[in-house]
Design a protein around this nucleic acid. Structure first.
Lengths: 383, 383
DNA sequence: TCTCATTTGTTCGAGTTTGAACGTTTCAGA
DNA sequence: TCTGAAACGTTCAAACTCGAACAAATGAGA
C-alpha cells in the first residue's frame, strides 16, 4: 500500500483546517501518524504538517512525539488542562484488520466516542474465530470494558461457537459489518452492517441504465463481503430479466501476477463470447488491475468494457477513474458506537437494534456512456 | 474546472441571500470552497464573497479559513459554543389506524419529538394505498412539513406505485413497520420495523424448550404483519426439524362468532389428530378468544394446549394469562423520529438507515410447563 | 424625479500561509 | 558514552489573502 506516492491532491489543495481535520481522521483511524507519511499523503511539506501538529497539540487534541503525533495520551504531561469529565464507559473494539477497510470504521467510531464521551480500545485481530476470541478475552481480562464492538469471523463451526459465546457475554455486544445467521441463538446481539447486496444491485442497475444488457461479476471469494455482493448481483440480474446462467461469474481469489493476467484474459474472452459489455468487480484494487489489463490489451474502457468497482479505496486513481460502490465505513463505526452508547444508557428495556446502511454509488468515467459495438458482439454471440 | 469563465449571471445578478444559498450549496457539495473560485463562478468580486463568508461564519454556518470556507468544523474554536439548534422542523406522520397498535407507536414518536424539538402532525388513514397518498398529499399541501413518517399500504400495484411516489418526494421519508421490497426503486426510503419473523421464531423456540414437539400457527391474513409471522414460524420449524407439512397452519380471517367457534373446533380437532400441543396465535385478541374456546371445551391450557399470542395488547386479560410476543411499538415511533431528526440535521451525506427492532417474549401462564399426555400424543402420532 | 440606505467594486497596505535553507536537538544503535 | 541520521525549529522570502477606506451602482420610498 505504499503506492500512495501520488498525492491525492492532484489538482486541489486543502485548507489548513481541512488538513488538520484530515490529520485527526488519520489519527483516529490508526492511533498514530508520522509527519513524513502525512506530508506525502497530503502533498505538502513536512514543515507544514509539523506546524499543524503543533497547533493541534496546543489545543490538546494530539500528543506530540518525535516523528509524528498520537492520540492524546494520559502520559503526555502537557495536556493536563482540558479534561472536563472522565470517560463514562470503556468500549472494546476488535476488528479483523488495521490496514484495510477498518481504519475508516475505527475513525468513525472514535469520532462518535468523543461526542458520547466514551473511551475506545481498539485491537486488531486475524480473520479467524479463535484469534477473535483471544483478543476479546484479553480486553475483558485486562481492560475492564463495559461494552464490545466486534467484527467476528463467522465461518465454520468455530464461527458459530464464537457467536454463541459472544451472545452469552455479560456485557452488551454490537457487531460491525456482520449479521448473525438465523439458526444461531443470538437474540442479544445487535449489529450495524452495510447492505452490500443492495450496493451490488445499485451498480448493476446503473450499468443497465447506461445501456448494458449483459453484466458480469468478478469476485474475490476470500473476502467475507463477497457472498453478499454476489447475491445482490444475482438478484438484480433476476429483476432485470438478464439470464443468470449466461452471465459471467468469475472468481480470482489467490491469483498473483502472471496467473492473474491469464485469468483476466480468460475473463475478457468470456465477455467477448457472451456479449458481456460490463463487469462488476469486487474489491476496487482488483478493479484497478482489471482496468489496467483492459487498457493494456487495447480494450476500450468504458467504450467496450464498462467497469464498476466494489469498494472505493483506490478506484479514483485508475485511468480512467473507476466508478465504485462506496460503503459508508465511517458510519458503520459511528452507528456502532451510537448503538452501544444507547444500550449502556437504556439497559435491557431497549429492544435489540439491527441496522442496515446503504452504500453509495460514485459514478466516474469507467462506466459512463452506452456500450460500443453491441452489434459486433451480438454477431459473435450468435456463432 | 476553471472553465466556468462565463459567469452564470449572464442575465440577472443574484441577491445576496441567493448568493449565500448558492455558496452553502457548493459547500455541502464539496466540503470546502475558495473565495476565488466562487467569485469567478458567481461573477462577483472576491470581496463580496468574503463578506458573505463572514456573515455565514457569524451565524456558525461555515468555518472561515484563509482563502475560503469549509463546513463547520469541530476544530474551529470560534464556533464551538453556539449550538442553539434553533431550527425546529415539522414532521408529518400518517398511520393506518388510530385505535389499534399505532397509538403506542405515535406515543413513542411524540416523546422523542419533544426531546428533539420537533413538531409532529399525525393523521390516521385507511389500510389502503389511495387513501395513504391522499393523506400525505394533504399534509404536504397544507402543513408545510419537512419530513414524513408513514406506514403505507404496500399491497398490489397501487402499493408499488405509492412506494415509488414516496421515494421521489422532495422531503425525507421514514417508513414505520414497513420494508420496501427489493424490486422497487426505493433507494432513498429509510425505515424502522419490528422483526416479526424473529418474534415468531422466538415464540416457537420457547415452546420447543417447554417440551412441545408439534407447534401450529393460527393467523389472520388480513393483517400486514401476518406473512412475517408465518415466515418466522416456518423458519423456526425448519431449524428445529419439525416437519412443516404435518404442522397446522390455519387462517381465521373474516370469521365471526358462530363461524369462528366452528373453525376453532376444527383447529382443535386437527391438533388432536396431529399431536400438536402448542399454537402460536396471531393477534392476541384472537389468542384470547382461542383460549376462551379451549377452556369452554374443557381443553386444559397450558396442560393440553399451550398458547403464545402474537402481539401484547390484551393478552394479560385472559384466564389463564397468555404468553405473548410484544413488538416494541414505542420504540418503532421513537426510532423513526430519531432517524428523521438525524436525516434533517445531516442531510444527504448520511447513508440510508434501515433498522430492525426485535420484539420481546412475555412469558405468562398459557405456555408454561411441559405438555401433558405426550405419551398419548406420540402414540397417536405414530399411527 | 430625487434622496437615502444598502450593496457591491477597486485599491492598497497589512497579515497569513507555505516552503527552502540551515543550524540545533533527539533518537537509536554501536 | 559516542555518533550519524533523522527530526525539529528558526529565519526569511515569496505568494497569496484579507479588510479598511472610499467610490460606484442599485433599489425603495417620498
Amino acid at each position: 500500500m505504499s503506492s500512495e506516492q501520488t498525492p491525492e491532491t492532484a489538482g486541489k489543495s486543502l485548507f489548513s483546517l481541512q488538513r488538520r481535520e484530515r490529520l485527526m481522521e488519520e489519527l483516529r483511524a490508526h492511533g498514530a501518524i508520522t509527519v513524513r507519511d502525512i506530508a506525502a499523503k497530503l502533498g505538502v511539506s513536512e514543515l507544514t504538517i509539523r506546524r499543524d501538529v503543533n497547533t493541534l497539540a496546543d489545543e490538546g487534541l494530539v500528543s506530540r512525539v518525535h516523528g509524528g503525533a498520537t492520540l492524546p495520551s494520559p502520559l503526555d504531561r502537557s495536556v493536563s488542562v482540558g479534561r472536563p469529565s472522565a470517560h463514562s464507559y470503556s468500549i472494546g473494539m476488535v476488528v479483523p484488520s488495521l490496514d484495510y477497510y477498518w481504519p475508516q470504521v475505527i475513525s468513525g467510531a472514535r469520532g462518535e466516542a468523543e461526542v458520547q464521551n466514551l473511551r475506545i480500545l481498539v485491537r486488531g485481530s486475524a480473520y479467524d474465530a479463535a484469534d477473535n476470541r483471544r483478543q476479546v478475552q484479553a480486553l475483558l481480562d485486562t481492560q475492564n470494558i463495559d461494552g464490545l464492538i466486534v467484527a467476528p469471523d463467522m465461518s465454520g463451526d468455530h464461527g458459530k461457537e464464537l457467536l454463541r459465546w459472544l451472545n452469552a457475554l455479560p456485557i452488551p455486544v454490537v457487531m460491525a459489518e456482520r449479521r448473525a445467521p438465523l439458526e444461531i441463538p443470538s437474540h442479544r446481539l445487535e449489529w450495524v452492517a452495510t447492505d452490500h447486496s443492495f450496493g451490488a444491485g445499485m451498480a448493476v442497475r446503473h450499468l443497465w441504465q447506461e445501456g448494458h444488457r449483459m453484466i458480469g461479476c468478478l469476485t474475490d471469494s476470500t473476502s467475507p463481503t463477497s457472498p453478499h455482493v454476489v447475491r445482490g448481483w444475482k438478484q438484480a440480474l433476476a429483476a432485470l430479466k438478464i439470464p443468470l446462467e449466461k452471465s459471467i461469474h468469475e472468481d480470482s481469489a489467490k491469483l498473483d501476477n502472471g496467473d492473474r493476467a491469464k485469468h483476466f484474459d480468460h475473463v475478457l474472452e468470456l465477455c467477448r463470447s457472451t456479449g458481456t459489455t460490463a463487469m462488476l468487480v469486487h474489491s476496487d484494487t482488483q478493479a484497478v488491475a482489471f482496468v489496467q489489463h483492459c487498457v493494456d490489451r487495447g480494450v476500450d474502457v468504458p467504450g467496450s468494457m464498462a467497469i464498476v468497482g466494489y469498494d472505493d479505496e483506490v478506484a479514483y486513481l485508475a485511468e480512467p477513474a473507476i466508478s465504485a460502490v462506496r460503503p459508508p465505513k465511517n458510519y458503520v463505526g459511528k452507528v456502532a458506537v451510537q448503538l452501544m452508547a444507547a444500550r449502556l444508557a437504556e439497559g435491557r428495556m431497549r429492544p435489540v437494534h439491527r441496522i442496515d446502511l446503504n452504500p453509495e454509488l460514485i459514478v466516474r468515467d469507467s462506466s459512463l456512456g452506452a456500450p460500443r459495438g453491441v452489434a459486433d458482439v451480438l454477431l459473435e454471440d450468435s456463432l
